[in-house]
């Protein structure tokens, strides 16, 4: 693999993600005002002192957008990493152990997936107290069902290959088989899946926040900012659209990278590996 083989669309995606992450890390340096400081009139237009205008309480929209990147990326990434670890561990365990464990995990997973994610989240969040880590945990657990399914399928795909059988015949232990034979061959599709899950987490978190069930004010977060400013829409004030556009842009960027990763995976699969 060399850098020149990465297509333009993927570069755009990588650049977008990099900018967002830089914003998140250096938020206090980049943002001209504080996250929660009321600095002017409400819903001031863009330009002048305020790059993107002010929000429904008179806070600087640009500053909140930069700080919001922090919250959004952190929560979405934490949820994705957690859901991925959970899903991968359980799915590989199911695939390698097989039998009863596999049946138990798989049936329970089917049950979890029979309820639409958003509805499930609404039901659960109606009961649980509002904490950041609870939100992350709920998102992670719900999303891990998807990871479990794909992880199990991928692992089973590889586990029936003859080189895995050959390792078994050699007398290799389960750990060697999982980490040295199966895992290296599943990295590419799993990486793409990680990107997909991340994009989904961003959208899901924003949706929850938009519905008032995600990150609680006054902390800035993109979905919540849309909710805060939505009443301005009827007056032709576009303050709600700016964080919305930020969410959309980040999700598009992630998807562009994922699209490239998936194409790369499928072209690597070529050849006679279908036996």
């Amino acid at each position: 693999m060399n850098l020149r083989s990465i297509p333009l669309s993927a570069w755009v995606g990588i650049a977008g993600i990099a900018i967002t992450i830089l914003c998140a890390i250096f938020a206090p340096v980049i943002a001209p005002y504080g996250e929660r400081d009321v600095v002017g009139d409400i819903w001031l237009p863009a330009g002048g002192d305020f790059l993107l205008g002010t929000d429904n309480l008179g806070r600087d929209l640009f500053s909140r957008l930069v700080y919001g990147a922090r919250t959004t990326i952190f929560v979405a990434l934490a949820a994705t990493v957690l859901s991925f670890s959970l899903g991968m561990i359980l799915s590989f365990a199911a695939a390698v152990m097989g039998g009863f464990v596999d049946q138990l995990f798989s049936r329970f997973n089917d049950l979890m997936m029979a309820i639409p994610t958003l509805i499930f989240a609404l039901v659960v969040l109606a009961v649980l107290p509002q904490h950041l880590w609870i939100l992350i945990l709920v998102m992670a657990v719900l999303d891990s069902t998807r990871v479990f399914r794909i992880g199990r399928a991928v692992a089973l795909d590889v586990a029936v290959m003859e080189f895995v059988e050959a390792a078994r015949l050699r007398g290799e232990g389960s750990l060697w088989i999982i980490f040295r034979e199966i895992l290296p061959n599943t990295l590419s599709p799993l990486l793409a899946e990680f990107g997909l899950r991340f994009a989904f987490s961003i959208l899901f978190l924003s949706t929850l926040s938009f519905l008032g069930l995600g990150i609680q004010p006054p902390a800035a977060d993109w979905g919540g900012m849309v909710k805060d400013n939505k009443d301005g829409i009827i007056f032709g004030i576009s303050a709600a659209l700016i964080p919305g556009a930020a969410i959309a842009t980040l999700a598009i960027c992630v998807n562009l990278v994922v699209d490239w990763l998936m194409k790369r995976t499928s072209s690597l699969k070529g050849g006679r590996g279908d036996a």
Binding site: M161, E162, F163, A166, R180, E181, P184, N185, G271, R272, G273, A275
Partner: peptide, 9 residues
């Protein structure tokens, strides 16, 4: 199938 009998990685 020697293709599938060897770990491609």
């Amino acid at each position: 199938m020697a293709d599938t009998a060897m770990n491609p990685r």
